[in-house]
Each structure stands twice: as structure tokens, then as C-alpha cells.
Nucleic acid binder design. Structure first.
Lengths: 338, 338
DNA sequence: CTGAAAGCGCTTACAG
DNA sequence: CTGAAAGCGCTTACAG
């Protein structure tokens, strides 16, 4: 167990009370901003506290009052700018609401995820927001809920309708992207990247339904599964280029795979936006200045984080309300890649 | 002040003791893994704790023992993948060491920075690691040190030699980058992006010294200052292309500005790696699959985070040792952009 | 090897 | 408007 720094000796409420010639109770009330206290007294107490270098010990206060102002946020993949942007959004909102955030990065490891959730429980988290690691199942919801800790699941739903959830309409998003390519006259359109999980399934469904609506039979050999990162996108696009013919466009599982695909296309001397059309998904910041700037599906990543914070804060206020589901409506952002 | 969830009623050490027919003290010792306890007793206590659904209240333990296992990490710009990678590194190391991390994002705001530092103090942070917001001065070091909280400053040094610091050798890094371009035969080499701050100054110095060593006079009009992000790099490169002639290469303030520069070059129909050579700085993950893959200066971002964690952990163990400075040695990573 | 007692720094009824 | 007392869940000497 790590040791904290050994300060000379903490100044406590007791010292302040003594110095001010009052009781601990009174000082405590002043610090809580109670209006039971005579203004002059409050002023004097604050002045003394300041002079003595008093620091409020929130830990002690919370132990006594049984409250907590800490919220745990667990992120599966911080190296993906999409999740980094989600984190920025949720952190901003939680801090604005007066909370402090424990952040943990699971790096898609289920063991680590279990460990950090347990740590957050021991730390007395007032709530937990989680982007589940790949392979997570509903048991994480059951576990956290059995602890009585308010929970919001982000991005990857675990047990639809059984927990607060904040994500985006993946099927719709990819459908829009695919339709856009169809509208541009493309007929053989690849799907690049993504492996497994609910998000992948919905996105594939969106891809298939857009083709179906246009009367185009789905050619399963144009679906190139790969890890949802740049390497995956690079590999998938390379395979696409080397094993198919007549493909003039592709939708990507997400922006990251699109970036990988972009570099693969570049290596093959293919001018994206002219010889080939490519769509991303997420609209992370980097898309605007990709080479070329990437057309993508905007799901407002940091907005998703903010909404998740709101859901969690409401759940904390009202623990028994029915599970809520926020599904952001994706919108196309068209740039030079299509 | 936010309220925590109101659990039915917590199971405490007292309940466990009663159920097991022992005293609180004994149970406490078992939980601490003390070897003063008879093995059978320990087993029984654990069994009872498990059965009762007991959860260790670390908060109470720490209040009593005066320890803390929480470390605050404050990051200036999470939207920059460089800092996200630093965060991943430091978080990983701190969690491995048994700590839990408070994360706060200042978004380069000095007020927010002050607020989150204060919050971390009230939370009883055992240590603080900070990437200071632009414009921070040595007062943040003084303040945190006056609180008696172990501190490590990352990336942007605040008061050289007065605090633990973990960063990289910026002058050397840019010198290597510039030399590489010189070796490739380039003579008019631009400097793209970056505005102010110690990091900018050292990188400029590296640029100037490399040119000087090659006997090339520094042309100040080839230095294009701009915000250290993609937009800045895009704007700076656009200006460079439109206001200069004969420039065949550029070093960038960091990878982010290089990405922006890359897109500006693309818009001008310039083939990077053939018609123009571009160097980044940092070696964030995204460089490997940029279009084209970006030559850059590797400072091992997540490694910097890990080193910062080590410095902080050592400082916690040994509060009075002299300030340490870890300066990573940058190395060139050559890809298609040069 | 185990227990009784005091106390970490605060809050919260309850008096007055 | 202010104070005395009890207690949040734990740890830590001190006994035995």
C-alpha cells in the first residue's frame, strides 16, 4: 500500500475553532456556507482559516456524511482519438458539475477492466461511466448495479434497455455514408475494417441495408474485417486493392481505419477523391486535415461524452428511474475524399 | 455539493467481526494481510467478509492512517494525441504501482488548471503530475510544493532545476530533423508551426543551430509561427507555399502541425516525399499511417509518461532528494515524407 | 495471537 | 445563532 506524503501536521477545523474562539460545529457550518451563522462570525472564521493555512479535508467530510464527489470513467482505448474526445466531453461536464474524475484506461483488457472497477468501488465512486472493453458482456452491468453504483455505458451497449446508455445510431450513420457513395454513382462499394461487437454488427447492417435499398446485391467478398485501427484499415484496404477489381469506393468502420485505408491508397498511387471515394465514421478532429480531408459521419464524439455525463448525473439524482438510452443522430460531413 | 448514492447500509468491519466472533482489530489485521494472525482465523474472516458482501472502505482507512493512494494527473491538451499517449503511459504505470488516478483536462486554461489543482489537494492527492497549460509560470510549482504534495512536471519545464521534470531534448531532436533534411540536399528549409513557450524556443534553437552548423544563414522569413495544432500547421504551410519560393523542405513544430502541413501540401498538388520533404516531431501513432507516412523525431510519448510516473513515485518515497530531470533522447524515424 | 480503547477530521441531530 | 456529544469505518499502539 503506497504511503502519502507526511505533512508537518494538518491544520484542522479544531485549530480554526480554537483560534477563533468558537466550536468546531460553528466552523463546520461556516465552511458549508450555512445561513444559520451570523455574517460577522463567518467572515472571522474564514479569515482565521486562511491565516492558519487550513485545508478542507473532503475525505473526512465524506466519510462522515456518506457522500462522494468522485466519478469513475473507464475508457477502453485512449489511443483512438474518438475515445479521447469522448473523455474530454465527459470530463468537462463532470468537473463543471463539481465532481472529480478517476480515469482508468483498460486498453481493451477485460482483467484490467475488472480491476479498475473494483478499485473505483473501494474509492467510493458516486457513479461510473464506462466504454466497455471489447468482449465485455452484460455481467459488468450486473456487477456494478449490484454494488448500487449509478452506471452509464457509453458507445458499446451491453444489455439493451437494462442500463443507461449513450451512443450513436450506427446503422443509420453507415447507411447515410453508403447512400452518399451510391448517390455519387458508385456501385461496387467496399466495407473496410472492424471485427466484432455490437457496433460492428450495426454498422454492417447499415451498409447492407443501404445497398439493398438501392437494389444492389451485397457482395460479401467486399467486406474486409480488420482490427478497428490504422493498421487494420491499412491492411484491409491493401487486400481490397489487391484482390478485387472494379471497386471505386469504400465506407470505413471508423475514421481510424479510414486513415489507414488512406495511406494504403496513397501507397498504390491512387488519388482519393478522384480515383477512389472513401468515407470515415466518427468525425474526429483529425479528419478535417487528413490528406485529403476525409468525408465522414459526424457523431459528435465530445458531445457523446457530455450526454453520458448528463445521464449519469441524472441517474445519481434519481436512482430508480427507468433506464435511459441516448442515441445521437449522425450527420454527413462531406469533404474532399468523396 | 453532489450527493453519493444511498446504499441500503454498508457492511463494515464491525459486522464481519461480530459474525466471525472476533474483534474489529483482528478483522482489520486480516484485511491488511498481517502475519500476526493465525491462518485459520484469516481464512474464516475472509470467508465471512465474502459472505456478508463486505467492501473495504479505503476512504476510512486512509483518513485514519493518514495515507493516500490517489495521484492527480493534469493534462493540458487531450485532443493532441501526443498528450493522450503521455497520459496512457503515466496512467498505466501508476495503476500498476497500486495507485488510482484523478485525471483533469485543462484545455490550456490557467483558471481551470488552478481549480483542478485545488480540487486534487482537497481530495488528498499523494502526488501530482502535470503537463502545464501554456502560459503557466513557476508559481504553480511553488504553490504545489508549498502544499507539501510531491510533484512532477511533464513536457514543459517551469523552473529548471527546481522540480522533478520529465521531457525530451527538443533542441537535439529538431537539430537531427534539420540535419536529415540537409543531408538530403535541401538548402531552403522552413520551420512550420509553434508559437511561444520553452518548448518552442528550444525547437527553434535546434533548427537554427543545425543550419548554422551547415554554414547556412538562418532566413527568419522561413519561420512560420502558428498554433501547435493541425489548423496552425495547415495555415502556416499554406502561407509558406504562397509567400516563398525555392523552399523544398520543412521541419514541423510537432506531428500535429505536420499533419496540417501535409493536407495543405496535398491541396496544392504537391507530392510530399517527392516534390517536398516534411519532418514531424513526437512520433505519435498516427504518423505511421499518414498519407504519406511521416518521417519524424521519436520521443516515445508513452515512455515519457512512464518515466514521469517513476519520478513521481520515487519522489513520494523520498521527498527530500534533489530535483531530478529526465530528458529523453530523441531519435529519427524515417518514412516516406522525406 | 487477539481484544479494548482512542482517534483520524469532519457532520449532524439535539439543546439552549 | 452557537456548543457539546456522538459517530462515519477504519488503524494503531498497548495490553495480555
Amino acid at each position: 500500500m503506497p504511503k502519502g506524503s507526511s505533512s508537518p501536521r494538518q491544520v484542522t477545523i479544531h485549530d480554526v475553532a480554537q483560534e477563533a474562539g468558537l466550536s468546531k460545529s460553528t466552523v463546520s457550518l461556516v465552511l458549508q456556507g450555512s445561513n444559520l451563522i451570523k455574517p460577522e462570525t463567518a467572515v472571522r472564521v474564514r479569515e482565521v482559516a486562511q491565516r492558519l493555512g487550513y485545508v478542507y479535508n473532503r475525505q473526512a467530510a465524506e466519510l462522515r456524511s456518506g457522500t462522494s464527489n468522485r466519478i469513475g470513467v473507464v475508457i477502453n482505448d485512449l489511443m483512438n482519438p474518438f475515445f479521447a474526445e469522448v473523455l474530454v466531453g465527459i470530463e468537462r461536464r463532470l468537473v463543471d458539475a463539481g465532481y472529480v474524475v478517476f480515469m482508468a484506461h483498460t486498453n481493451e483488457s477485460l482483467e484490467r477492466q475488472q480491476a479498475v472497477l473494483t478499485a473505483m468501488r473501494e474509492q467510493g465512486a458516486a457513479g461510473i461511466a464506462i466504454c466497455p472493453a471489447l468482449g465485455s458482456d452484460k455481467s459488468v452491468v450486473d456487477v456494478v448495479q449490484s454494488w448500487g453504483i449509478p452506471l452509464v455505458v457509453m458507445i458499446r451497449s451491453l444489455d439493451h434497455g437494462q442500463h443507461d446508455f449513450c451512443g450513436s445510431d450506427n446503422a443509420l450513420g453507415i447507411r447515410l455514408a453508403t447512400q452518399h457513395l451510391l448517390d455519387k454513382g458508385h456501385r461496387r462499394i467496399g466495407f473496410v475494417g472492424g471485427e466484432t461487437g455490437v457496433v460492428m454488427e450495426s454498422r454492417l447492417e447499415g451498409y447492407r441495408s443501404a445497398l439493398a435499398a438501392a437494389g444492389i446485391p451485397v457482395d460479401e467478398s467486399l467486406i474486409f474485417r480488420a482490427r478497428p485501427n490504422r493498421e487494420g484499415g491499412h491492411g484491409a484496404m491493401t487486400t481490397l486493392l489487391e484482390t478485387t477489381r472494379g471497386v471505386t469506393a469504400a465506407v470505413s468502420y471508423n475514421d481510424l481505419t479510414a486513415f489507414g485505408a488512406l495511406s494504403a491508397l496513397g501507397e498504390h498511387g491512387i488519388r482519393v477523391g478522384k480515383d477512389f471515394a472513401l468515407m470515415g465514421f466518427d468525425n474526429v478532429l483529425a479528419t478535417a486535415h487528413a490528406n485529403p480531408p476525409l468525408s465522414t459521419v459526424d457523431v459528435r464524439p465530445s458531445g457523446l461524452g457530455e450526454h453520458a455525463a448528463d445521464l449519469l448525473l441524472q441517474r445519481i439524482r434519481e436512482p430508480d428511474r427507468p433506464p435511459q438510452c441516448y442515441l445521437g443522430k449522425p450527420e454527413l460531413v462531406l469533404r474532399q475524399s468523396t
